[in-house]
Computed example of a mutant assay.
Amino acid sequence: MHITEGNENSEILPGYRCHSGSKFSDIETAPSYAMTSLYQRIFSDSKAKFSGPFVLGWDNKEFLEVSLKDVHFQAFAIRIDGKILVYITNISVGEQKNTIENYTASFIGEYNRKRALFVQIIQSENYKISIYQKDNEPIIFFGSTPTET
């Protein structure tokens, strides 16, 4: 069984697909959903679901240390007001002290009273916010400052 990162749209909408032999899962928003999708496709009579990251050994400190060797950046999440979980998937500091040159973050929230994925990207002083909703084209805002977007 393999999990690969992909994207459902031509934009940077994150997606995961799991496969085993010639069987593939749907493109899902999380690796665990992709595993569950594939398992249910292979064993269609089963109601079993993926047990979570501990089954893969992510609770083993030695395993984590070895898997992070030579990794310069590790994605992380920040919970805001106990409600919104923001995933920081890319960040790099510019040559000037205390400046961010590249940054990518995403979170799930509401836009026009519907569930949406928000993706914010900063690349060399260009700001982009993309809002993705199921079955809709993304809404994209551009700007050269954070308040311009």
Rank of each mutant, 00 (worst) to 15 (best):
N98C: 12
G52D: 01
S124L: 03
N60K: 13
P31S: 06
E148I: 00
R17S: 05
T149K: 10
F63W: 09
L38G: 02
K69M: 08
S32I: 05
D70C: 07
T36W: 06
N102R: 09
Q133E: 11
I27E: 09
E8P: 12
C18A: 15
N9C: 11
E5V: 15
E11W: 07
Y103W: 14
P31H: 02
G15I: 00
N9L: 05
Y33I: 00
Y111H: 14
L38W: 00
I121C: 09
I78M: 05
C18M: 06
S46L: 10
S25G: 05
Q74W: 02
R41M: 10
S37Q: 05
S37F: 02
L56S: 04
S20G: 11
Y33C: 00
M35C: 15
S106P: 01
N112V: 06
V93H: 08
A48S: 12
K49W: 03
F24H: 11
F141C: 02
A77S: 13
H72G: 12
L38T: 04
S92I: 06
P146E: 11
L13I: 01
D26V: 02
V55W: 00
A77E: 06
D81T: 08
R113F: 04
F76I: 14
D45L: 03
I121Q: 07
S25A: 10
P31K: 12
N9Y: 05
F54V: 15
C18S: 04
V71W: 02
G57S: 09
F50I: 12
V86L: 13
V55R: 01
A48Q: 03
E8L: 12
K23T: 09
I121G: 01
S10A: 13
V93K: 15
P31F: 04
T104G: 03
Y111A: 09
T89C: 06
V55F: 05
E110C: 11
F76C: 11
E148K: 00
T99D: 03
M1L: 14
